[in-house]
Design a protein around this nucleic acid. Structure first.
Lengths: 151, 151
DNA sequence: AGTCAAAGGTCTCTATCCGAGACCATGTCT
DNA sequence: AGACATGGTCTCGGATAGAGACCTTTGACT
């Protein structure tokens, strides 16, 4: 049963984190939260982490699994994840070469908060779509009102 | 069994969510998780949610608070959040007009998972930076090896 | 009375990103 | 011999994001 009240401790941490960030003079690039969250916000990153939860996968496997990614973006996203220690990359010098990507321990610790976000997304997707419809309707009425006789 | 699995239920949910997504034939755009997560991944969105945790804020307040955002991007991000029902927008017809942005109830429910992500980011920022340094060092050694005579 | 500033944007220009798809080296299968 | 698979890289063109000029309205200041 989920309580409607938001979590006070979590909220405080969010607010505090933001306050800490905004206190920094120029060095926003090195704000830990932004640094990490911007990375995770990169288009394919979370999706690829999801794809590696079950088991390691090879490059072309991932490429086939995610239909609308390009090789270029896949390479970039995997490099990014590898750099950050979220996934590891193993080259098997077979022929043709096989490259396996695997969730690193650090990546595994990410799954818990990621799962929370995903759960939230699934739980609230309906509400969000409803809000979008309301917004679109309100906007249509607004722009329509300028064309039709008002009041 | 696996080694230390932090959250088996969460991992399962992530994997299941991904499997559901990949089962969709063409309609990836309507995958709930991608739909929502792509939105939240938009560059400034989470940061603005963080900025609104404490209290509602006005447009220029946010603009000053986030030093490296442009007005255009701020407007876009706030519109996006408004469309999704994460924030509400109130116009006070004073002069000059004041516009207040406030976290909507739906936005408040987001704080819990967001706090989890932020906590993870703060806790693991050091490890991530270390991983990046290791990667950079390894890369430097690789490209340096091509210059020097290797074996 | 004229000028200036502030709020909340919009508009334009440019830089960056992303996907599509060609290309590559190599070894296997037909 | 030639097509094919692997794991990429490279280039191209369109979409997207950021910087910063500009706009409008009105009150305050000179």
């Amino acid at each position: 049963m989920k309580e409607t009240k938001p979590s006070p401790a979590g909220d405080l941490r969010v607010a505090e984190s933001f306050r800490r960030w905004v206190a920094m003079p120029v060095d926003q690039a090195s704000c830990p939260v932004r640094d990490v969250l911007d990375r995770l916000g990169e288009k394919w990153v979370t999706l690829l982490v999801m794809a590696l939860v079950e088991r390691p996968r090879r490059f072309s496997e991932l490429f086939r699994l995610v239909p609308d990614i390009s090789k270029r973006s896949l390479t970039q996203a995997l490099r990014s994840l590898e750099q950050d220690g979220i996934v590891t990359r193993h080259v098997f010098p077979t022929t043709p070469p096989a490259v396996e990507y695997r969730l690193a321990p650090l990546g595994a610790t990410m799954l818990e908060p990621l799962a929370a976000m995903i759960a939230w997304a699934e739980d609230n997707h309906g509400r969000i779509r409803a809000a979008r419809r309301r917004y679109a309707a309100a906007e249509a009425k607004r722009s329509g009102a300028s064309g039709s006789a008002s009041s």
